[in-house]
Nucleic acid binder design. Sequence first.
DNA 1: GCCAACGTTGGC
DNA 2: GCCAACGTTGGC
Length: 153
Amino acid sequence: MKYWLMKSEPSCYGIDDLKRDRVGVWDDVRNYQARNFMRDMKKGDRVLFYHSSTDVIGIVGIGEISKEAYPDPTQFDKTSYKYDAKSTEVNPRWSSINLRFMTKFKAPVTLQELKLDPFFEGMLVIKRGMRLSVQPVHEKHFKKILELSTAES
DNA sequence: GCCAACGTTGGC
DNA sequence: GCCAACGTTGGC
């Protein structure tokens, strides 16, 4: 099983939206590196759900990959601002995955906490200028974040 | 709202 | 294939 981190702006789609929907469609990634990671995802992989561009920045819950990469429907939709004229049905450029809600933390494990704890050194999300919205996470970091989240209230 | 750090685009 | 210009991300 692999572990990932996925960023989302809560004003756009946050953990509460995922909780309500139970399964969320990740369908607007237009970055090749992020796409490639999404294509590596396997059913059952765990995902740290991260809130960006908000007052409390950090990891707010856990999800699970419930459907592996498939062509992102928005790339063929001419009415979508995510429409990509260069993408074809035969050779789609962009991929989607489905994410199933698992847990919402009582309190976020904040970016600030991660930066202060030497244990998380090397974790991609705390690297300055790391804008990648989908990234792999080490198992030890994932597990530690789970511990931290239950330690909080 | 600022701006640094990237990624992408397109002229050459 | 280089690289300047431009657009976007995302923390602060």
